[in-house]
Each structure stands twice: as C-alpha cells, then as structure tokens.
Write a protein that binds this DNA or RNA. Structure first.
Lengths: 407, 407
DNA sequence: TCGGCTTTGTTCAGAACTAAATAAACATTA
DNA sequence: TAATGTTTATTTAGTTCTGAACAAAGCCGA
C-alpha cells in the first residue's frame, strides 16, 4: 500500500554504478532510459560521480543518426564484494569486482553443527578477506540453504544445517563492521541470474536448482519473490505422490524425496547400478556409458521434475525457466524425461515456454551470494533495508576502505 | 530495473480517496502513515481535496494522549464505478460507490459464442449504466475467466469463453469513452479482497476460488502477481495425478478435472447419489443430509485441493489462504478432507498457515471487477497503465460527469 | 553544400516532497 | 493546578526530480 519509495539520491547514484557494472559502458541517454529517470537528472548525477572519481568518460560511440554518444565507464577499482556459501560440511568464498567478475575464491571445511560454528565461520571469513585487495569492501553476502527473515537482518532457519533462528547477520556485522546481507542460496542465485545471466532480458523467470535438494528462486517484475517469511521457492516439498518415502520434512511424497541426490543414489544402489560405496559421480558415469538402468533413473527424475514444474509454471506464468545446480552435470539424461513431461502437462498457451540450462561452476553459489551485495543499488530500500543503504553509502563515499563503526 | 516510479500528484490525491473509501474516515496523521508520506504533504494534499469538495472534515476523535485527531471523510457522491462479470451464458453488472459498497446489480443472459457478442455486451452494459445515478462514473471494470494481456489494454484469451485475442478493452473504450480495465476474474477478486476483505491486513496472500473451475489470485507485497502474459494463478491445471480424465486443456490429471463442478457432479451421478438430471444443488443437499457417498465426494475433492495447495504454499509462502467461489457453499464438506491433507503435506514451519473461507454472494465476481477501477489509485502507474491515469483524472477533476472524448 | 532530421547532452524554472521547527490541543502526574 | 509529555497539524526552507526549451553534433537527401 505504500505509495512512493522515498527518492534517495544515493540509490540513484549507486544504481548507475551497478548498471554499468552489470551491462558495461553506456551513454547518459542509455542510462536515463534504463533507470527510468530524466536525462536532466542523469547529467547532474554523472557529473557528481565523475568528479568523485567513480566514473570516467570513454570515447564516443558511432552515431546512430544523431549526435554520437559519449560513453561512460566504471572506474573498476571502485569496490569489491565478498560472497559466502554455507553448507553443512564446508564454506566457500569468492571475491568479486564491482562488475561481478570473480577475482579469487576459496573453499574450507566447516562443521555447521559444531557448537563453535559462528566463531569458526568468522575466523575463516576473516582470513579470506585479509588476503584480498585494498579496494573498499562494499559488504558481505551470505547464501544459506534455508529461510532468512530479511536480507538485512539475517536470522536463519535451516533444517539442512540444523539451525534455528541463528543470527548470522548480526554476528558478522558485529565482527566485521561491514554491511552484511544474508539470503537463501537459491534466491541469491536468482539475483545473480537477474544481474549477469539470462535473467537480464527477462522480468519474470524461475531459477530451479537440482542437486542435493531441489529449490526455486522466483523473480517477478524484476525482483525476487520472498514470500511472507522469506520462505518462497520451497518447491522441493511440493507433494507429487500420495505415497512415497518419508521426507526430511516429516511428510510423504515430496518432490525432493524422489529426485534429490540422496534418493537417486539410493535407488541406483538398490538396482545394482553402482556399488554401496559409490555416489553420484559413479551414477553419472554409468549413465554416460549408456547403462539403461542409470539413464532410466535420471529420466524418471526428469519426468517428476517436469510435471512438478508444470504446476509451478501454471501458478506463476514465467517467461523462462533456468535450470542450475550441481545436478545439471547430468542434465542430458534428465532432459530425456523432463521435456515431454513438462510440455505435455502444460496448457497449450504455455507449452512453448523457454527452458535454459546454464553451465555450472563450483563457485556459482558463492558468486550468487556476492551478487546480493552488488544488487542493493537496485533495491530501492525494499529487500535489503538498512544494510542496503550502508552498502550504497560505502560505494558512494568510498573514503573509508574498512573499519568504520557502522553496524 | 526501474528505479523510481514517477511521483505524480494525482496518484497521491486519489490514493487518499481510495484509502478513505476502503478503510473509512481517518485523520491526516493516519493517512500520512498509511500512505507512507510526510505529514506536511498530507496537510497540503487534503487542503486541496477539501477545497475541491471531495473530502470533508468530520468531528474530532477522542484524544489518545495528545491533540485529538480531526477526522476526514469522503464526500460519498464523489464517484461510482461499474463492474462486469462475463461468463459463457450470462453477464452480471454491479454499480458500486466510491467506498466499494454495492448500490445495485443486474444479471442478463448472454451468449459469449454468438458472433455479435461484442455488440450484445455493449448494449447490455449501456442499458445498465443508463439506469444509474448521476454521479461521475469513474470507469468500467470487466472480469473474465481467462488471461488478459494488460489491465489497461484488455485483450482477452479465454478457453472457457471460446475467445482468442478479443479486444474487449478497446471496444468498450471506444463505445463508452470511459476508462475500461479488464482483468482475469480471480485476480479481480484478489484485488477486492485486498481492498475490502481479509487481505487488508496482509501483504502476501492467496485467493483460491472453487466452483465451475479452480483458480487462484496471488497477492505479493500488496499487489496482484500477473506473470508474464497475465496468466498467473492457473492452479486448475496443476498436474495432480499421472493418470486421470482428459482435461479441457488437452492434458491428463489436472486438478480441475478432478475437483471442478462438472467432475463432482459426474462422479455423483456415476455413484448414483443424484439422478441424471440433477446437478450440484442436489449433490450438496445429499451431503447436507449426510449421504456418505456425497460427503465422500466432497471430502475427496478437499483432499486433492489440500495437497495441491500445499505445493502452491511451498512455492509462494503466503500469510493466509482465502477460499472463495460458488463452491464454498459446500465447504464444510470439503474441509473434512482439505484440512488434514493440506496440513500434513506442509513442512513444519508452514503447517499453521491460516485458511479463511469467506461468505460468497452472487454479485461477488462483478464486485471484484469494479474493485479494479477503485484500486487504480494504488497502482502507481503499474498495472492499469494509461487507463489508471484516466481513472485518477476523472476522480480528481470530477467536473465532467460523462462523455468527454478521452480514450 | 545546405537545409532537414535525429539523437545526445545541458540549462533552467518550477513541481513534488521531506525534514525540522513550531503551534495546537489534549492527557497524565506530581 | 502547574509541569511534563504526547499526538496532531501547519509552516518554512531546502532537496530532488521533471519537463521543456535549447545547444551540440552527427547523419542524409537534394
């Protein structure tokens, strides 16, 4: 019901920086159009940013019939962000530049169930940050497999990690005196997709991850849908069968209990496709070698995923579905069952919906977490709240590389 | 990616009117808080509105420890809106006051498949409008069972009506020279819920209708989620079974083909609960009389609905689910299967989700359509686009009761 | 080569808002 | 009953944006 988000200038200024970071150099006129702002204001804002040394004028771009555009580019040393991926047995870090490119990364063992896990995480993170460049650190993004009350708060509930109301945001904020944004890992990926991936061209899309579990990030009108308690996108627990194995959530017949990695490996062992000691890698190898049992396992999983996603597509009407996650390594085997199941279960007008499978890298999760920090300029005080404002201040002021007391 | 919706004053002015219409009289301070605007601006805006004769000062409300609030109320003759419900065999009209209350209603036979259906609709609508009051008519809202490209455009696709790309919006605009807003009927209901119903207290909720078909309206952060092509909420075609009757959409196992009215009646006939000539009324009567076969039919339907909604709730994480539609007349029989199915299929943190069943009236559909017109003040140029601006202009100018050439 | 045409970028007046200070009108409490 | 506090409403000064007009800098066709 709120009417008009307060027009704060720092939102605009850093939106310009983020836009240039995500899409490369652009003219003032381009920026004004893209950010839905008058050319007059863009002139004034860019003048300030150039004076502050955050932007610089590049060469002219060839004329398109009129006056040639003077391109503007980022001063790439303007900032960096750190992304953290937290899972049950390890954490991964990346440092990204202001344009989202990964500069360095690391992975460390970590026990989320240890009593000292918060101190452990702090220590590991401190070590990683210390190794970085001297550029101003805009903030820390943390991706977790679970639900987060608010990005800027960072109270985490996660069955997978065994966490209940863990105040990861406030803890890290206190330790590092930096803006800290916490988000569900799939939502973070969706933000990254929106900034740097296929989602750039789409306002409404669905990011689906397959791997240990199954999850979805939902982007509507360009922003991530979080739902009431930050728990939207839990498609892993869509009921797909009246009967079925007991899921970790306590219910029967959840999607995840059929197509999660544990389930696929278990049924592969049951059918004798792989040995008791082997795992997903062996199963994938078997499928690659055209073992019919192995390909059937993937194909059945694809079938179930396809029908479940048909329901989600009917519910949300996205433009495109983007498949990500560790499980995509075997996607060619999934798709055999997925494609027909999805298409045939859709109403005719949706049957042609686009499905994209992007290449997956180890660091993608952490990169997504970092994207949350870089996305705050577009946030207009919505998701990231207070912490978003702090990120913007750091980006624009740029005077204090670290350590101000700003929690 | 847009940054800041252009701050148009007419948006604010009519937002005040709509707020008062939806929530009753309020003080300036209340309004400023509710609309997220400074008290200073509220003083200035209300001064204008009072001068224009749209608002008037009421008595003081008892003090809550400070200066007592001067309440502001709508001048109720400030405007009216007409809502139209279109289904295959009839149309229904309502005229509502600026506060959303129904003033009069009518229902007329109508053949959506006739070649002259557009002319027929125009004639019926013209007749209904002619019988109304002399107050300025703000606009016409049309609810259809199908998808609409954009509210302010009004190009309709509806399998149920047999319509493909029917330009209902532009046709009515040309005929009546009034703002015309077209929307999917369930989405329209969701807007009405948001303005006048349970949804007033919730930013994220789900409106589910049961009746001839099954549909959902999704409200996220206070606004209706329309999806890419305006087709979000088609939960009737969520696949719930690998096998099942052929659905009208061409697929098998859709939710609607199990729990739509036609299916329930058919299975009641099959089981001999009702005669070949009887319909839903007879089935409900049988269930009311505790016929075990009849109650089982409803209970099974409730069970299927519950499991399907569990998937939707996992996907969207709403605060509350609101059940509406003609089918709610038999809800007590549905709920027997619905409640356990829904709760047991939800992950623990969602298991307590609120479910509300509101009383249903014949004119609710048309009232929902009218609500779309009255909701445009809150639209901030988003959904209703150009037509929303026109509604606001009519509301604020109020000089021209009808007939200006303004399409 | 000279006017149209188009697109980019700037300037400037004014609109739309806010923040902060202040007044107004009550309640509570000593 | 006087002092203190609370909530509502208004005024004033200043900031942030837009719209419109205009200058700049290229194209193109005659």
């Amino acid at each position: 019901m709120a009417l008009r988000p307060a027009p704060r200038t720092d939102v605009n200024r850093s939106a310009i920086l983020a836009r240039l970071g995500a899409h490369g150099p652009a003219s003032r006129a381009d920026l004004a159009r893209a950010l839905n702002v008058s050319p007059a204001l863009m002139t004034s804002l860019t003048k300030d940013l150039i004076a502050d040394g955050l932007l610089l004028e590049l060469d002219h771009s060839p004329s398109q019939g009129g006056r040639p555009a003077r391109m503007l580019g980022l001063v790439s040393s303007a900032g960096r962000a750190v992304g953290v991926k937290v899972v049950a047995d390890h954490v991964a870090f990346v440092e990204v530049g202001i344009d989202g490119t990964v500069r360095r990364s690391a992975s460390e063992p970590f026990d989320a169930s240890a009593t000292t896990f918060l101190a452990d995480l702090t220590t590991l993170l401190r070590r990683f940050i210390a190794g970085g460049s001297r550029e101003p650190l805009l903030g820390i993004g943390v991706g977790v497999p679970g639900s987060v009350d608010r990005q800027g708060n960072g109270l985490v509930d996660s069955a997978q990690l065994g966490w209940q109301q863990v105040p990861i945001g406030s803890t890290l904020r206190r330790e590092f005196a930096l803006p800290v944004l916490v988000e569900n890992n799939v939502n973070a990926l969706a933000v990254a997709e929106r900034l740097y991936g296929v989602g750039r061209q789409h306002e409404n899309f669905l990011v689906v991850t397959i791997g240990t579990g199954v999850g979805a990030g939902i982007v509507v009108d360009g922003v991530v849908l979080r739902g009431n308690g930050g728990g939207a996108g839990e498609i892993g627990h869509i009921p797909v069968s009246e009967t079925g194995p007991l899921c970790s959530c306590g219910s029967h017949g959840c999607l995840e209990s059929f197509i999660g990695e544990a389930s696929l490996v278990a049924s592969a062992r049951e059918r004798g496709v792989i040995g008791a000691g082997s795992g997903m890698a062996a199963l994938r190898a078997a499928a690659d070698a055209e073992n019919p049992e192995a390909t059937a396992i993937f194909s059945e999983a694809g079938h179930r995923l396809g029908r479940a996603l048909a329901g989600v597509v009917h519910t949300l009407d996205p433009e495109i579905v983007i498949i990500l996650g560790e499980g995509t390594a075997a996607w060619k085997h999934w798709s055999f069952g997925f494609e027909p199941a999805l298409r045939s279960a859709l109403i005719p007008s949706r049957r042609g919906i686009a499905v994209a499978v992007e290449t997956w890298q180890d660091e993608s999760w952490a990169q997504g977490a970092a994207a949350i920090v870089l996305a705050t300029p577009f946030d207009s005080e919505g998701l990231a709240g207070d912490q978003g404002r702090l990120v913007r201040e750091r980006l624009v002021e740029q005077s204090s590389p670290q350590g101000d007391d700003l929690l």
